[in-house]
Design a protein around this nucleic acid. Structure first.
Length: 652
RNA sequence: GCCAUUGUAGCUCAGUUGGCCAGAGCGGCUGAUUUGUAAUCAGCGGGUCGGGGGUUCGAAUCCCUCCAAUGGCUCCA
């Protein structure tokens, strides 16, 4: 009885087997062909080696190459094969870790001379040899002491360090492939040939040992690996398409913004076309906030250090601030956030419960010192305009105010057609109170509960992330994914329970008692820089009409119709459309082509027919020739489209 | 900030075993053409080869250094 086990198959069938049987044997029992194709088994939903002895009752499923789980195995094994190739070619290299990741894998190596892109081809060729040799992956369980000694002896200090820090409960396993081996938890494929050839080494990068910037810099090689060549090609093609949407490339093409070495890194210059985008976003935000009861304020860009000492910025946020400048013996800082100024505006008048909630908004430019290596187009800059506001309210009002802000996010996402997003509730880490976070343990817990409740009551989906809160309170970040698959925090929403009291912000409640308000920081459009960077990639530069820097272009068919075209253009300008005329002595086809390349949504073509019938002919990007109509009808239709901020044009 | 790569005309890019006045396409300018839904033809301009220093008879090309960008690491809106 002890030497028999029951294995349950995916279809629910159960069968008895001898204890110690392997997944391969089970598969072979079904059909030899299946055993040949099997890469691994899933035992009770845990992926395991095909040759691992099975000693207890389990449910099994045989994983073939086509299985979703196989991808991770292929990628992980590809990392191992790469590590072997690297050590064969460059024996002075130490190995560290090499996991499978989204779309591929990487392996971190320690070597005095970092690898360069030129090494990649050589390594790839060696990998092909290893895969062709088809050596088996063999799992061995080692004694901990023996393993540490072994890896120390062969000069693999990092591996020895990893083993030392493995929990006692965990077995130390080593996988051999031919004469090469690696410390690894597994699972692995049966042999190297199963890795296949649908992989490509992509790039080299530096990476800190254990992700800590105080540690040694290792050299990381990234690769991508897939089940077959078709998947690989699709992925590489996707990368190529994504490149075309890169906001830096489109920004240049459309003359939206620029950076200038003499101005400084991370300091964008907004060109006229890009400024239209900012102004349209502002208009949207101002309209929305006007209706939602916000008051607009303006505050200065520099401020005395003492204010930031009070707010806690100098103790918690100084690394992200530009250094102080000396003005008349006082230290002044460029503002990294608007909140202290808004607190001062709140404090400028006595407040009562009848005044609350007070919602102060500002399109303020803030300055943050970002380390040079992390600047990235418009997405990470050093000067940024925020769609910022602070809501001061009583605890009773909190939930309603908070949810109203969340709903505002959703309204914006609807306008921009943002479908994939995730709300993240970032919580504090109690081990870092007083260090990374203001030291108010009870208030943290209380506020976090308040926020969680509000989110739950509002029926909003969210995930919780420990240790990512702002220094003054929990925050809700809204992550969105751009068309290129890059992930960004666009909007942010934070609750501040600590600073209002530091600023002695008060209001008189119904019982004539003095109370401290809660403060909600919110920026639904985040910074305009990042938001626009995102929108460029999202729309691939083909903005909806209301946002388009140039909305329409009038194209006279020949010089003979220039006068008519000018009169049309003027009428459209009178209606506040952004329009220009293309009166070059070019053929119509050329003018249309240029307008298409410039991503102008509407082309207005006028020639003899239009002059005679007093009409205009409309061509729309992505739709082509729409025929002719009167200018009045066109103005009405177009106004409607702009006013409702609709986006009828789907990107292709 | 750290590791790697890159920097040539407004844009995209050739040109590197160091050697004739540094090239192309597009854009621009001028002229011709007067055009019906994605490129009319011809001519002409345009470059401190990222900045500085060095090696050399000679540097876009080799070396040093600074700046900037790109891909990552770390950090973040």
């Amino acid at each position: 009885m002890n030497d028999k086990i029951v294995i349950t198959f995916p279809d629910g069938n159960k069968k008895n087997f001898d204890k110690g049987i392997t997944g391969y044997d089970v598969a072979y029992g079904i059909s030899p062909a299946l055993a040949e194709q099997a890469l691994a088994v899933s035992l009770n939903d845990k992926v395991c080696d095909l040759y691992l002895p099975i000693n207890e009752n389990v449910s099994i499923s045989i994983l073939k190459r086509s299985a979703e789980e196989s991808l991770e195995l292929i990628r992980h094994d590809c990392a191992h094969v790469m590590a072997e190739a690297v050590q064969k070619l460059f024996p002075e290299t130490q190995v560290t870790i090499g996991p499978a990741i989204e779309n591929g894998f990487y392996y971190d190596f320690s070597r005095k001379k970092p690898f360069t892109v030129d090494d990649l081809e050589v390594i790839e060729n060696k990998m092909h040899e290893i895969i062709d040799a088809d050596t088996s992956f063999i799992r061995e369980v080692w004694d901990r002491g023996k393993a540490i000694k072994h890896f120390s002896n062969i000069g693999e200090q990092y591996k020895a360090e990893i083993i030392k820090e493995l929990p006692e409960s965990e077995e130390v396993t080593v996988y051999k492939q031919g004469d090469w081996m690696d410390l690894c938890r597994g699972p692995h494929l049966p042999s190297t040939k199963h890795v296949g050839k649908s992989f490509k080494l992509m790039k080299v990068a530096g990476a800190y040992w254990r992700g800590d910037e105080n540690n040694e810099m290792l050299t990381r090689i990234y690769g991508t690996a897939w089940r077959n060549d078709k998947e690989l090609r699709t992925y590489l093609n996707m990368l190529k398409e994504a490149e075309k949407r890169d906001h830096r490339k489109i920004g240049k093409e459309m003359k939206l913004f620029t950076f200038d070495e003499e101005v400084g890194p991370g300091l964008p210059l907004w060109l006229p076309n890009g400024s239209v985008l900012i102004e349209e976003l502002e208009r949207l935000a101002k309209e929305t906030e006007q209706k939602a009861g916000y008051d607009r304020v303006k505050t200065p860009h520099i401020t005395k250090g003492s204010l930031y000492e009070k707010s806690g910025h100098l103790s918690h946020y100084k690394d992200s601030m530009f250094p102080a400048m000396d003005i008349d013996g006082n230290e002044y800082y460029l503002k990294p956030m608007n909140c202290p100024h808004h607190h001062k505006i709140y404090a400028s008048l006595p407040r009562t419960y009848k005044d609350l909630p007070i919602r102060l908004s500002e399109y303020g430019t803030c300055y943050r010192y970002e380390k040079s290596g992390q600047l990235f187009g418009l997405m990470r800059v050093r000067s940024m305009q925020m769609n910022d506001a602070h809501i001061y309210c009583s605890e009773d009002q909190f939930k309603e105010e908070f949810l109203a802000v969340c709903k505002m996010y959703l309204k914006y996402f609807d306008i921009f057609g943002i479908e994939k997003y995730e709300m993240r509730l970032s919580l504090h880490d109690k081990d870092k109170l007083g260090e990374k976070y203001v030291n108010e343990s009870e208030l943290w817990i209380k506020t976090e509960n308040l926020v969680r409740e509000a989110l739950e009551d509002g029926g909003l989906n969210f995930v919780e992330i420990p240790g990512e809160a702002a220094f003054y309170g929990p925050k809700i970040d809204v992550q969105v994914w751009s068309a290129i698959g890059r992930e960004f925090t666009l909007a942010t929403n934070q609750v501040d329970f600590a600073i209002p009291s530091k600023f002695d912000l008060t209001y008189i409640d119904k019982n004539n008692a003095s109370q401290t308000p809660l403060c909600i920081h919110r920026a639904p459009l985040g910074t305009h820089e990042r938001f626009i960077g995102f929108l460029i990639e999202h729309f691939a530069g083909n903005f909806p009409l209301w946002l388009s820097p140039m909305q329409m272009i009038v194209i006279p068919i020949s010089d003979k119709f220039n006068d008519y075209a000018v009169s049309i253009c003027n009428k459209l300008k009178d209606n506040d459309f952004r329009v220009r005329i293309d009166s070059r002595s070019e053929k119509m086809g050329a003018k249309i082509r240029d307008a298409e390349i410039d991503r102008i949504p509407i082309m207005i073509i006028v020639g003899e027919n239009e002059v005679n019938s007093n009409t205009i002919s409309i061509r729309r990007k992505f739709k082509g020739n729409l025929g002719s109509l009167s200018i009045e009808d066109f103005v009405d239709q177009t106004n409607q489209e702009i006013k409702t901020r609709s986006f009828t044009v789907k990107n292709s």
